[in-house]
Design a protein around this nucleic acid. Structure first.
Lengths: 132, 132
DNA sequence: TCAATAATGATAATCGTTACTGTTATTATA
DNA sequence: TATAATAACAGTAACGATTATCATTATTGA
């Protein structure tokens, strides 16, 4: 495994993501960080987003189109607008469960939800053990 | 809104997806349905997957790479293997909450989860009302 | 039967993401 | 502090899943 070095670009990307409340796409974040580092490369953005995800410092939100990124480390729920595609934080699940009826009222309807756990399945676990 | 007509291709796609237990990608489903309709076009696959999703007959699972599709209409949880990328059904959420510790034991760890509600946000709801 | 048009097959285009390459910056060591 | 090793970079080409286009075929209502 290669050493991980300090990088001004990665610091700027993480810092920018932490200082905003939305969940931007790679391009949105790229345009924003370029105000600080004008010659930042898009490849650098993607490379560091992957590094930060693997490192657990940021979260990747998949919605079928572009990926969205979230600097909050702990797991929490989101509302994805099926109309504009934006992600909204629903930070407290207890709160969500209590307010969903009202949310549903103003939003017309909750059309569905997706709950996905990430882990290692039995197949891969077995294979990994055999390859030790 | 255009009329929706009967189509042998769409019927075959939905039927194939309903008769399997995994959550295939568009390409996996395409290769399978082509055994029945050899000259099926990939564009037809994608067009009908979108139609079926909008119609609520199938579910689209996003995981950052390719999309996966699920013929089960009601919302339920999944385990996505972070190693091989496969999706596994966790059909009963009560069951999940009780067995997650054991699941965690055999799988090494649950690395995280993603809970996303889909609906219409306040912004879009307001705009839609104004454009009536 | 026939006109209107939705759906198709084939293929080109799109676009978010990844890979490649030569250069620059960081880090450990002398 | 100089220097060697190499991680990270900028710039750009390549990739691949998905969407759009278009001429043709199939469905449907009259």
């Amino acid at each position: 495994m290669p050493q991980v070095r300090k990088s001004r670009q990665r610091d700027a990307i993480l810092c920018n993501l932490q200082n905003r409340c939305d969940h931007p796409t790679a391009m949105e974040l790229y345009l924003s960080v370029r105000e600080e580092i004008p010659n930042l490369s898009l490849g650098t953005m993607y490379r560091n987003l992957n590094t930060l995800c693997k490192d657990g410092q940021i979260l990747r939100l998949s919605d079928g189109g572009e990926e969205h990124y979230d600097a909050v480390a702990h797991n929490h729920a989101h509302l994805k607008c099926t109309c504009c595609g934006r992600f909204y934080d629903l930070p407290d699940l207890d709160h969500v469960l209590h307010t969903l009826p009202q949310t549903s009222a103003y939003a017309g309807e909750i059309r569905g939800c997706s709950l996905i756990f990430f882990g290692v399945c039995a197949n891969c676990h077995r294979q990994a053990e055999q390859n030790i």
